[in-house]
Each structure stands twice: as C-alpha cells, then as structure tokens.
Amino acid sequence: MSHTDMSTPFAPPIRLGLLLIPGFALMGYATLVEAFRAANTLSGRTLYTWSHVSAQGAAVEASCGARILADAQVGARIDCATLFVFAGGDPRNFHDPATYGWLRALARGGCAIAGISGGPYVMARAGLLAGRRATIHWEHRPLLAEHFPDVAIESGLYVIDGAVITCAGGTAGLDLALALIARDHGHALAARVGEWFIRTTPRDAAGPQRQSPAERHGTTNRVVLQALATIEAGLDRPLPRTQIAAACGRSLRQIERLFQAELGQSLAQTMLTLRLDSAAHRLRTTDASVTQIALDCGFASAAHFSRRVRQRFGVPPSGLRKAVGQAV
C-alpha cells in the first residue's frame, strides 16, 4: 500500500471504497468522508475519490434513518487503496458470507481494510483480525473480546496494523482521516484540514475513548475517586463497605459523608448503580446468559438480579437485551 505525496503534482487520486452496513452510524461515516473532501478542497486538487458499496447494491439506511445510495455491490471488481467498513448498532445482526469472502479477496489483493465503530467486528467475522492489534467502539469491545479472543484489543481511538486499520468511530474517524492524510500528503495539509473542522488539538491514536473517572462521575475528590476505582475493580465480588473505606484510609462514616457531598447518594447506592450499569452494558453487548451476567456483576441469583434491573430500568433483563446500543 504505497501512496504518492504532494511532491508529485500530477499523481492520480487515491481511490477509497466505502462499504456501508445497514444501521451504520452517520457520525463515524461523515467525519472520515468530510475530511477527505476537505483535503481535496484545500489542496485545489482531487487527492481522493471514493465510491459507496453495499451488500445488495441498493441504498443503505443509517441508524438515524438517512439513506445513502450505493455505487457498487459487494463482489464487484473495485479498484481502491483502502476499503472502509462502516457499521454501528449491533454488528451481530449483519451476517453475510459473500461480504466476508469479498473482504478477504480484497485484502489478499493488497487493499487495506479499515473498520469503523462496529466495522472491526465485521472484519473479525471475515477473519481479518486474527492475531492482529485492533480497536473498536467501547460499546462493542465486550462483544469482540467474547467472540474473538485471538484479537489483541486496544482501547485507543484507532490502530493501524499494517494494511489492517480499525477505528472507534464517532469523532475518532476525523483523527484517523487526518493521520491518513498526513501519511499520504504531509502534515501541513492534515493540519489545515483539522483547522477546517475546528479541531485545533491533535489527539494521539492511543488516546482514550471515554472520559476520565473524574469527568464521568463529576468529582475531583481524590478519596471518592479511589473508592470508585476500588468498587469498579471488584464488581463481580463486591467488597463490604467497611473494606472499601479501609482501602481509602478513611472510616465508613467519613466515606459516606464524602459520597453524599460529592455524588448525592450513599456508598451502597453507588455500588449498586455501578453494578447494574455494568450488567446493562453486558446485556446489550454480549451473548452471555442473564444468569452469568448476574453472577459476573456480583448478584447472588438471577431472580434478585432481575428485580433490581426492573427497579432501575423499568424493564426486565430481556428488555435491556433487546434495547440494542447505537454506537457511533
């Protein structure tokens, strides 16, 4: 996979393929395509061209309901340097052996394959991630880890492992596109594209996908954050509150006062909330049984777990399982 940089004034454009999986997230798609469009506009040249592909050759509907027309059908002879696979929602719902075979054939022919958001899961099903480093949207990470344990999953924004590229999606698509533009045509153009989209602070490929614990919980109190980390590290076997307090070098009464002041709820309420949120995430993103998830999140029985889930979310575990997350 070799590209020509800006020093060659009449180099042909780099051809890209955009494979759209039904339910793909428009955000992840737009951040990439718009970056390549901006590179063309700002350089005054056609540096990139692209064509849309779908499994049936028909228009594909994004998770928001927008529909994008396809230029080609899976299986067609397509001349592209990189094929991007856009998927969102629940990538388990897409199962098409013809697509997997086509992706393998393109990879054998020297085409780089790049999965966006849930796209890496589609690539893994095609056998393209075995033994590879990869990332995926955090919502899909448990699913990828469960079904493909031979993939070395990283938690960053994107991973370029030779001709195999994976990206968490959302705004990380812009970070990946800028990295590719810099590789192909220099850092100066990539910086201009970043400014075009009001992206003034570059993000490293290994940057975090999620907020820090302080941002996520809305507190900067060191003791509370230490207690939260202790809780999250032992969701499967919840520690007694006195042990959590002792681990933080505080009495239980002091910890309780801090939690009420910083989070507006007791230590016990916080522990239950974190366990239920973890369980809800696993219900949406893995195929593990309700009983297994209940045990993994520290509940004594499936019945007790079901009661707690209904109290918090208003539906039984089966209702959460049907409420598929829409990763960007």
Rank of each mutant, 00 (worst) to 15 (best):
T220S: 13
I244V: 12
H147E: 14
L272W: 01
V324Q: 15
P142S: 07
G127C: 00
N221V: 00
V224T: 10
P97E: 14
V223G: 01
A191F: 04
I255Y: 09
E146L: 11
H3P: 00
M123K: 08
W196G: 09
G115Y: 08
H3G: 10
H52C: 11
Q211E: 12
A62N: 02
F148E: 13
R210P: 00
H147F: 10
G57P: 12
F259P: 00
A303S: 14
K322G: 06
V60R: 08
S289V: 05
E232S: 09
L18N: 11
A227I: 07
A245M: 01
Y48T: 14
A66V: 09
C80G: 07
A227W: 07
A59F: 04
A30R: 13
L18W: 10
F305A: 00
S54F: 09
H185R: 13
F86H: 12
P91I: 01
L267M: 09
G75L: 02
T286M: 01
A87K: 09
V223D: 02
A55G: 14
G170T: 15
A72P: 00
I244A: 06
R253M: 10
Y121K: 03
L180A: 10
A66E: 08
T31S: 13
A130Q: 12
M271G: 11
D71L: 06
V290H: 13
A76Y: 00
V193T: 08
S266R: 05
A76D: 11
A300W: 06
A303R: 12
P213K: 00
D204W: 03
A98S: 12
R308D: 10
I21N: 06
G65N: 09
V33H: 07
L42Q: 14
P149S: 15
Q326V: 01
E61K: 13
G17M: 13
H147T: 10
V224A: 03
S43K: 14
R284K: 13
A177K: 05
L69M: 13
V74R: 03
A302V: 04
R15L: 02
I153M: 10
S306A: 12
K322S: 15
C111E: 06
E262N: 01
V74F: 07
T220C: 10
G23R: 06
R192M: 15
R92Y: 07
T41V: 15
W50Y: 15
A105N: 10
Y158A: 03
P91M: 01
D175N: 09
A11L: 03
G234Q: 12
L239W: 09
I198R: 11
A214V: 01
A205V: 05
W50C: 02
T46F: 02
D96W: 03
H185D: 07
C297N: 15
G131T: 05
G314R: 04
